[in-house]
């Protein structure tokens, strides 16, 4: 078994009809790192996450988790193996309370087999404390704000006790201070020993937390490297960041907004 690579993606391709959403993408996610995944809208980032989590099946190529091929495995099997994800368009269980939402993750995730329903609720309380949602635990999840719902998505994934957590734009729609809080949360999760794959448009987050970055454009990988390497790559500037981002960086301005806005 390859000790450093938790997730190996080899030539992953996804066709919808004749249209390629993702073409021949290969990269590894190393155990214990925070890997950023960036690219313009429609670049295939979410499709890639769907293929890893089993909600979409790759047309070609293989995806391996700890040397085990994931292709064709059902989402619930992949979830139990230790892969958790969030959804870009959040999917809370609206008529359940915040605590119940998280407890469901604790019941059926990797750590869920050994847990009783009561133990799962206890674990849910812990996770809610960790993401600072404990004051809302008995509220219905539909009553949460956008920031709250994003946090709830994170909490549900965390409660599964995953080895890797795939975050699909958990910062989208958050305000400045909320982004800072969420970045602290990502670092805290990482300190907890969980590997992270972070999809994000907010470059401040990518530069701030990621050790490595993979850049997609039109379903293809166009760059891979440290945030500094990637942001100076001409192809990436051309396709995604734009000249203004680079100019602002040169002037030492902080780039709060995503390159697309």
């Amino acid at each position: 078994m390859n000790e450093t690579n938790l997730l190996e993606i080899r030539g992953a391709t996804k066709l919808y009809g004749g249209v390629a959403a993702v073409t021949d993408i290969s990269f590894n996610v190393q155990r214990g790192e925070i890997l950023g995944l960036i690219g313009p809208n429609g670049a295939g980032k979410t499709t890639l996450v769907n293929m890893i989590s089993g909600t979409a099946v790759p047309t070609r190529g293989t995806i391996k988790f700890k040397d085990e091929v994931l292709n064709g495995k059902k989402p619930h099997i992949i979830g139990k193996m230790g892969i958790a994800r969030t959804f870009q368009v959040v999917k809370p269980f609206q008529n359940l309370t915040v605590l119940e939402n998280v407890a469901v993750g604790a019941m059926f995730g990797k750590g869920g087999v050994k847990r009783s329903s009561a133990q799962a609720f206890k674990r849910g309380e812990e996770v809610l404390q960790f993401v600072h949602l404990e004051n809302y635990r008995h509220d219905l999840s539909e009553s949460l704000s956008i920031a709250g719902r994003k946090r709830l998505e994170l909490a549900k994934g965390l409660a599964m006790d995953p080895e890797i957590l795939l975050l699909d734009e958990v910062m989208a729609g958050l305000r400045g201070t909320e982004v800072d809080e969420a970045m602290d949360l990502i670092r805290a999760i990482h300190n907890y020993g969980i590997t992270l794959l972070v999809i994000e448009h907010v470059m401040k987050v990518i530069v701030g937390v990621c050790q490595r970055v993979v850049v997609l454009d039109y379903g293809k990988k166009i760059a891979e490297g440290t945030p500094a390497e990637v942001t100076s790559e001409p192809a990436v500037i051309q396709a995604y960041l734009g000249k203004r981002y680079v100019a602002n960086q040169a002037q030492g301005l902080t780039q709060e907004q995503s390159p697309l806005e």
Binding site: T55, H76, G79, M107, F108
Partner: peptide, 26 residues
Amino acid sequence: TRSKFGYGLFAIRENEEAAGVLGINT
């Protein structure tokens, strides 16, 4: 309604895709 099976059913009712990703054999 207090068992794991029951919560699995609730999760399916609320959002089947999310339920599957959370490890529920829908």
